[in-house]
Nucleic acid binder design. Structure first.
Lengths: 336, 336
DNA sequence: GGGATATATCCTTCATCGAAGCCATATTGC
DNA sequence: GCAATATGGCTTCGATGAAGGATATATCCC
């Protein structure tokens, strides 16, 4: 690989001159610049990011901490979409992304923070992770530019999907379709779940819906079995709901199957709605009614804000960006 | 950030000694080593990968080239699964992964190869990409350790899903269920599509199935609309097929919807099968019959082989690893 | 107008980032 | 005095930035 040294030798100038010419400093003659650039091209020169990073303390590489149960998050539709959008955004600005979440059971493993220092990430995006993990906390408390998604740490920029508004809109839509007995199978306890659940109750109250305790159940996120079980219980009630909300789109498939097994039709006999707006929901039959989160904007904002934190280290603006979603009406909530 | 220099100052030894102690060279006294290690820990020392890479020419970072239409591949179930498995494998061996496929429309953009040199990747994994892209070709021809998935370049290690065997097993299964009129909506022309298509024809011939030309149609990969259109055409035939194969699971949903619209039942009136074995197919009703590709093994093998190429630069073993899948019987192919 | 000083232009030298390896050197025991 | 062991000095990787030097031109005063 050709380095600046090679160019300097060929051009008969010092290495520093080459550096300046390639970085377009103003104190190098136009002619020299042109010549150096041309030789650089001819030699197939390309900067070495390690060397550059060593000197400048900037890697143009950001870490992504993105772990679900499987420590990956990649197979997680919602977060994969967010990541995808994040990736496109930062890459357009010249940053690369590297995964930060290595398998925890490796010996000699680094903590997240150590990993960041090791790789010299300019910043980190955190999402879809166990936010109570002490390692995450350590990372968040460090001085590395950092943006979180869907979880609020004080003094850190965060992009949150508007779960309160989302749930309100979804429940309101369902109400408007005539439903008065709405059940909610919510996800396992988390910040996201709590906002949705409280918004569910609040909206129900505002609309005058009565929500008996037995209408509120729990199933893990993306757990079709658990959602199916809860659905079964709901259907057995003396006064079953006319519409069931699920923790997410995926788990609603579990409910759907149970409903079909019982010989009930969606949405004629019972209505359901998911949450997230994953792609496949729009392609199955009947199309899933859901709240579609704006993963595009969430990821893009996370990218923008992170880069802005990186590039303006002085102005420590801590922002809380709330991104609204929209009801995707689909076909699984019927008119009553 | 504490560096070796700091440790050397505190311990009163030279930087070289610190380096050797931390790297466990045998020519440092046990006592010194212990002390240095302890001080290192106290100071919160962590190696700087840039500095190390500069000197050793090893980054312990591998590039991943993984682009679908959206230049990402992340939102692509099959490849996201492969990537996930690949990631876990290489991370367990101490490597990080960084995406190589930056948006093509950026100015000052690097080619893939340039990007690799810039970041000093130890190796590259390529999948889900336009293999005819000259940039990809340039990369493949370089001397960077490289593994491809599902596309064979000569003299390069490749992990391929066994499309020939997979299609044969799928068609055979369908045949065994009594189907004699099987249509195949295949994907747009590509190496993968070609293997499946020829295997389809071959198997059909072996089994004595007659495949009229009108039974073979095309729809883009994961294109529900196209698949729906093709399905509609197939259903209009004087002698419509009793089973339709799709390019992939996702596109089969498009077919499913058209079928349901026509008032036909799956599998009682017509059978369908996908290909890939994406998770959601097992959770919808009826469960999708498909050929489940072994993404876990594909990703893991890609990781193993890549690391082996990296760590044994002399033995240039070029391997072609074929990974079989399995028929997931599901419920969408009925007995006739 | 001539010499002296200021200024701009262009480039080089030097130090530096953090780590690693070669080779030299110091210490110890025998 | 020699081997074995332990440690340090210097250089290198590739790039950058501060500071300074060389040259040419502009400006000034007497």
């Amino acid at each position: 690989m050709a380095s600046m040294k090679d160019i300097s030798r060929v051009c008969g100038v010092s290495i520093a001159t080459v550096s300046k010419a390639l970085n377009n400093h103003k104190d190098i003659g136009e002619e020299t610049k042109t010549h150096i650039r041309q030789v650089a091209k001819e030699l197939g020169y390309f900067p070495n990011s390690s060397a550059r990073a060593l000197k400048t303390n900037r890697t143009y590489n950001v870490g992504v901490l993105f772990a679900d149960e499987a420590m990956s998050g990649l197979t997680h539709d919602y977060f994969a979409d967010v990541l995808d959008s994040f990736k496109r955004t930062v890459e357009a600005r010249g940053y690369d992304i590297t995964f930060l979440n290595a398998s925890k059971n490796r010996k000699n493993r680094m903590t997240y923070l150590e990993h960041c220092r090791y790789r010299g990430f300019d910043g980190v995006m955190i999402a879809c992770v166990d936010f109570s993990d002490p390692e995450v906390e350590e990372l968040v408390k460090s001085d590395i530019p950092l943006v979180t998604v869907d979880y609020v740490f004080c003094n850190k920029t965060v992009i949150v999907s508007d779960n309160v508004k989302g749930m309100r809109e979804l429940v309101t839509y369902i109400y408007e379709q005539g439903h008065r007995r709405v059940a909610y199978i919510h996800g396992a306890d988390s910040a996201v779940t709590r906002s949705r659940l409280s918004s569910f109750y609040k909206t129900a109250e505002e609309l005058g819906l009565i929500v008996p305790d037995e209408y509120v159940r729990e199933a893990a996120y993306r757990d079709t079995k658990g959602a199916g079980r809860a659905t079964k219980e709901l259907l057995k009630l003396k006064e079953p709901p006319t519409c069931i909300l699920y923790p997410d789109d995926f788990s609603s498939f579990g409910g759907m199957n149970v409903i079909k097994e019982k010989g009930l039709r969606i949405p004629e006999d019972i209505s359901i709605a998911g949450y997230d707006g994953i792609r496949v929901g729009r392609h199955i039959e009947p199309q899933l009614t859901t709240l579609r989160q704006n993963t595009d904007r969430i990821g893009a904002q996370a990218g923008e804000k992170l880069i802005s934190l990186i590039e303006n280290p002085k102005t420590t603006i801590v922002e809380q960006v709330v991104i609204g979603g929209e009801v995707y009406t689909g076909k699984t909530v019927g008119r009553i």
